Structures are given as C-alpha cells and as structure tokens.
Simulated assay, not measured.
Amino acid sequence: MRIAIIDLGTNTFHLLIAETKGDQFKILYKTNVPVKLGEGRINDNIIIPTAFERGIHTLKAFHKTILSYHVDKVKATATSAVRSAENGKDFVRETKKLADIEIETITGDEEAELIYEGVKLSGAIQEKSLIMDIGGGSVEFILCDAEKLIWKKSYNIGAARLMQQFFKSDSISDEDKNAILNHIQNQLEDLFEVCEIHQPKKLIGSAGAFETFAELIIQKNKSNIDILTAKTYEFDYGDYIATTIQLINATHDERMKMPGMIPLRVDMIVIATLITNYVLGRLKINKLVLSTYDLKMGVLATQL
C-alpha cells in the first residue's frame, strides 16, 4: 500500500510518502516547507491571514504531489497551532474544500504518543529515557524504556510561543533569558517530579531543533555524517554544550552565518537551547541522542 503522511506543525509542514508491505516500509518521497503557521499571534490563538494562505497554498502543492504518486491513503495530522487557534476549524474546513485533504487535529496526548512510536521505530530507545520534541507551539515529553511508554505530556511552551512572548533582544539579554527560564520552571514541575521517581539516563531529542544542533556540530567538526539519511545521532556532550553557549551568545546575524543553520530556526534555536539545557541540568543528564524519526514516522508506524 502507498501512504502519504502530512504533519502540519506550527513552524513546518511535512509530507512523507511511503510504500508499505506488512511491517516493512520504503520511503519514496519526503519534503518540508517552513509555513510558519504560528507566525505573529500564536499566543492570541489566531492563525493570521498570511500564514493561513501559506498553509493552504502548501497543502494544494502537497495534494498535487500525492496525486502524482498514486497514493492509496492520506493521513494528515494537525498539532498545536491548529488545535489552539480560534480559526483552526476554519483552516481544516478550507483545506478540505481547496486542497481536498482531510485533516485530523490531534490532542497533545495523541501527539506525544505518536512521537514515541516514531522514536521507537528509529531504535534510539535502549534504556530508560526522556524523549523531548520541541515544536513551535508545544513541547512534548515522553518518559519510556526499551519496552514501554511510562508517562507523557504536552506543554504549551513551544519555541514560537516563547519567542513571541519573551525574546525581545539581540543577542538575548539576561532579562529575557531569565523570564524564559522562570516560565519553563513553572510549567514543568510535574515533569521533574515524575523524573525524580524514574531517573531517566538519556535525553532523546526528536528531530526538529535537535537536527539543527547535530548539523551545526557536524559542520564545525567537518564530520562525514549525513543527518538526512541517519536514523539516530549520538552527541558528544562537550561539543553540544560548546555549540549551545555559542548560540545563546550570538546575535541573529551571527547565528545566520553558522554553517548548518537553516533560516527558520535562526531565532527559535535560542529558545530550544534554553529549554534543552535547563532540562538536562535539572535532571543531571549528560547523554543526548537525536532521533530523526518523529511524529510523521510515528503515524507511519501505526499504519504498518
């Protein structure tokens, strides 16, 4: 069977087309577009008109690609930006009408579950671990071990939300940084309580910002690794910390010039860095692994 999976993220829309046979799959096509659906007023729970139009335009293009691959089934999932927006249902309705794509808006819990399934498919979960997926609208945490999912929760502290609310300086000021960290601390108390009980040994970063961290380090070290084809990447902790210090201290223009940086993440990577480093420090974890498999691969896993 040929299946198309669309992941409508707050920052990026992804399209993946795969051929499945039993529990095996082959990826035929994948692309992503920086739609920035959460641009401008995500904290007011509104998709602004220009972002709305970009989203519809992108999904029309996805529909053409899907038709050209003679797909049997389409699974489109929308996450934080659509589920929290007052006009999210309008976006879903217009997509059906103009792009002939049926969107399912999933809950934060369902999102976390699918991220877990995707990461599990990558083989990254070898021991008791905390999976972290930093989106534009929300951040999902999943506590798990090699056999099972233990605990999961979605928090509305995504990079686009925090950037619009707190990030007003260039480079980021101590005042902005402290405001972000205080907000994170207040939001994540129950996460730290459950981790105190279960003591995860490793943080697994699900795609997104963690791919950018990896790409920055790979380019800096001139390593012969292709993140586009890798399922996982194990960070050298010293390299990771050095890179994140550089990111936090850099200006927008300095980050833009870093080899491996993509324009979409130039500013949001600072927020991702602050959240990740706070979690690593609070939980005393110094093992960090990237899983390039994320929500869309989790959706694929449910279809096998």
Rank of each mutant, 00 (worst) to 15 (best):
K152P: 03
E113C: 01
T107L: 15
I125A: 13
F141S: 10
M132S: 14
E117K: 14
E147H: 13
V139R: 08
L149F: 10
F141I: 15
A124I: 07
G135V: 04
E113P: 07
D109M: 12
I150Y: 03
I134P: 02
N156M: 09
I142R: 00
Y155V: 14
M132I: 08
G136R: 05
C144D: 03
K148N: 15
I150D: 06
S138E: 02
L143F: 11
E117I: 00
I125Y: 08
L143P: 11
K128A: 07
K128W: 03
K120N: 09
K128R: 13
G136Q: 00
I150C: 10
M132G: 00
T107C: 15
E117A: 09
E110Y: 09
S138K: 07
I115C: 02
S154H: 03
S122W: 14
A124T: 01
I142H: 00
V139S: 04
Q126E: 15
T107H: 10
I142Y: 03
K128N: 15
K153Y: 08
E117Y: 08
A146T: 13
W151I: 03
D133V: 05
I131C: 01
G136T: 02
E147N: 11
L121D: 12
K120I: 10
S154R: 02
L121E: 11
I106L: 09
M132K: 15
G108I: 01
K152I: 11
E110T: 12
S129W: 01
Y116K: 03
E110F: 04
E113T: 13
E111V: 15
Q126Y: 08
E113N: 11
I125V: 11
V119D: 04
I125Q: 10
G135C: 01
E113M: 04
G136K: 02
S122Q: 12
I115T: 12
I142C: 01
I115P: 02
E147R: 15
D109A: 10
G136L: 08
Y155C: 13
I157G: 04
E111P: 00
S138L: 12
C144G: 00
K120P: 02
V139C: 06
I142T: 05
L143G: 02
K120D: 03
L114V: 07
S138V: 07
M132Y: 15
Y116M: 09
E147I: 05
V119C: 08
L114T: 05
D133A: 04
Q126I: 10
Y155T: 06
A146L: 09
K153I: 09
D109E: 13
E110G: 06
A112E: 04
F141C: 10
M132A: 13
L114E: 02
I115A: 01
F141V: 11
A146W: 07
I142P: 01
I115M: 06
W151V: 12
E113S: 14
D109W: 07
G137F: 11
M132H: 07
L121F: 13
I150L: 14
E117D: 14
I115L: 08
C144K: 04
E110P: 04
D109R: 10
K120M: 11
K153A: 11
Q126T: 13
Y116G: 15
D145Y: 02
E111C: 14
S129M: 14
E127G: 00
V139N: 07
I157M: 11
L143I: 03
L149I: 07
